[in-house]
């Protein structure tokens, strides 16, 4: 290999195969120019590695752990609530009596609701019927009108 090729490989020395490395090293033994360049690059790299070495004390990890466990327990509570909500929807999806589809179940709910509301719709006509005082006399219904002294009986229904 010539200098030109070697100089290209300097940056990638660590990615070379063992065979390539041997060729490379052979060349550097006899070529001070390439060796110098390699030295500079290699030393700079060592320097970079050193300055990015992760060196922290016990104190760092203590603070780390307490902060992390707080964050994790927060997330855990949140996911617990979420799983409850999920379970509830899962419950709604599962058929209660046999394979009852969801839409039928909801129609049933709406129907029951409407039946419950029925008296409210009719309450006005109901009260009207009892507006007058009704009296039942010998199987006949009379409504009564009080006029102070006299009471008038009107035949309502036979």
């Amino acid at each position: 290999m010539g200098c030109k090729k070697i100089k290209k490989l300097i940056l990638n020395y660590w990615d070379l195969t063992d065979q390539e490395k041997e060729c490379f090293e052979e060349h550097l033994k006899d070529c001070p120019s390439c060796a110098k360049e390699f030295d500079f690059y290699h030393n700079s790299m060592e320097m970079i590695k050193q300055s990015f070495e992760f060196e922290v004390g016990e104190n760092f990890w203590e603070r780390y752990e307490s902060a992390l466990s707080k964050k994790l327990s927060k997330v855990a509570t949140k996911s617990l609530i979420l799983s409850w909500v999920e379970d509830f929807f899962q419950f709604l999806k599962t058929p209660i009596i046999g394979p009852l589809p969801t839409y039928l179940f909801s129609i049933l709910i709406v129907l029951l609701f409407l039946i419950g509301l029925y008296p409210a719709f009719n309450s006005k006509s109901f009260s009207k019927r009892f507006e007058n005082n009704l009296v039942i006399h010998e199987g006949e219904i009379f409504s009564t009108i009080d006029d102070g002294e006299v009471t008038i009986y009107l035949l309502e229904k036979k």
């Binding site: 990015f52 992760f54 760092f60 780390y64 902060a67 992390l68 964050k71 994790l72 997330v75 855990a76």
Partner: peptide, 22 residues
């Protein structure tokens, strides 16, 4: 730390990583 160059930020980021992992 190597990506950011600061210990405090590296601490926060790595905690985000573990929360996301969780």
């Amino acid at each position: 730390y190597k990506m950011i160059g600061n210990y405090e930020d590296a601490k926060d980021i790595s905690q985000i990583v573990f929360v996301k992992t969780y």
